[in-house]
Amino acid sequence: MKSFKFIFFLLFCIFFNLNNVFGENAKVDEISKNLRCLICQGQSVYDSQSEFALSVKTLILIKLESGSSEKDIYDFLKSKYGDWIVYEPEFNNYTLILWILPLFLFIFGGFLIARKVIINKR
């Protein structure tokens, strides 16, 4: 019974937090979170207050207003600063192993386990 009370309390809290607040330029925030700042190299453009990051944010706003899509903006910045600037590595020849290797290891592990279980069963 206690657990049920807890769940309802949980639900209560969740519903009363759902009044989403968004910034002046929610889309700019969203895009700049996926960009890496060049000046302070561990931070995202969104988190950084460096001159460069501020300019990038302004540029994103200008581009959005002139009708560019999210992908256009990423491509534009990639053409200027290289793939390094986006946090999400694109799936291409260079990053093939990056995306495939963990999945391969997962399947390989599953294979080893399956073999062991089947041998044990016999």
């Binding site: 460069f52 501020l54 300019s55 302004t58």
Partner: peptide, 13 residues
């Protein structure tokens, strides 16, 4: 003035 032209040049500082 807003630093956006420099981005077109690929500059960052």
């Amino acid at each position: 003035t807003d630093g956006t032209k420099s981005i077109f040049l690929g500059a960052y500082g």
